[in-house]
Amino acid sequence: MEYLINISILFSIYGILAVSLNLVMGYTGLVSLAHAAFYGIGAYATALLMTKVGLGFFETILCGMLLTGLAALAIGTVLSRFRDDYYIIASAGFTVIVFNILMNWREVTGGAVGVFGVPRPMIAGTVLTSNLSFLGLSLVFLAVVAGAGTLIVRSSFGRALKIIREDEDVALVFGYRPLHYKLAIFVISAMMASVAGSLLASYLMFVDPSTFTLNENVFVIAMIVLGGLADIRGALLGAALLIGLPEALRFTGFPDDIAAQMQKLTYGLLLIVLIFIRPQGILGKFRI
């Protein structure tokens, strides 16, 4: 039971990441590899502010979102100069740079040692020590993020994003300024990723830089491509499938080295095959 709870918590954290990245990637057509950086900034904001400053969990979520929002504003402004593959490579640069700062700025981040002893959230005087109560909280966050995502994509703002995705010139004719819209959704998406980071830090009661890498970012992209581009439910489905797969492989009895590689092989093959037979993903509505 405890084990299923653990997987469900991981699912809700990755669900938030997948939904948030889908806003940028699926709805706006920007394949960003900077998302792992925002995830990391959020996680470290919570870990450091809770252990060093003594703020409460919910305050650190807000601080993390603010910090990530500012970082995303700066990074997004730089990235807005690039298109397509240059955009992807440049965004990868930010993940690598943030990773290196987390790894090497020991005085603040603890370096490779990471930060441990991160407390669990406290609601109305009770600390959520049990994983079940933490699952409840993380599902609430997932619901809020998915709900906010749905509202955004259904609003006139979301429609403008889709027009920009299809044709920026047309968007200009309609009076939308692509740059502002792209920047706005980039910042919103980054702030959502920050929430996922905060949850991870408090759940594991520990953070270290090794989670916030390019590989992690590619993993979330695979979730979206698999589950569905430009579809909130698709992002959730993709997260559930890719989180569930390796856990299911634990029970198959394959030697572990093979099982770990089978997971990688499966998601690699899925990426390739899906692009051929269903480029928009299982539930998706858009092809990049």
Binding site: V225, L265, G268, L271
Partner: peptide
């Protein structure tokens, strides 16, 4: 994105 799949 496909080439990332091939890499994996």
């Amino acid at each position: 994105v496909v080439s990332l799949g091939i890499l994996a």
